[in-house]
Amino acid sequence: MPKILVVDDAMFMRAMLKKLLTEAGFDIAGEAETGRVAVDLYQELKPDLVMMDITMPEMDGLTALKEIVKLDPAAKVVMCTALGQERSVMEAMNAGAKDYILKPFNAEKVVEVLKNASG
């Protein structure tokens, strides 16, 4: 199964996503709580997929997405953010994100989107 890097500044969201994705059969490559750490870990871990929050301190998800895509134009990044950040989501899609998930999320939808993105 694809290896996923989970990026979210909220410990709760990282824990929920890791549990959900593990149960769905994904491998967790690692986790990051800022965009800066995500970019560093992407180079180190070379995950198949990245699940990226948008609103984060230090470096937001949009900036991290752009840096990752610059490093690896084939990177598969799915944005995961609070309902209401659609403008940022659209900017992310234009910057190379494969898809997006809105919180509060539906577990089945998360798995479906990630499987499609990894295909």
């Binding site: 909220a10 969201m13 609070a82 309902l83 209401g84 950040q85 919180k103």
Partner: peptide, 20 residues
Amino acid sequence: EMASSAIGELGNMISGHATT
């Protein structure tokens, strides 16, 4: 700490929807 994070995320989700 986990519960604090969950409650923070609740505020994030409400505010995100409100700003839309």
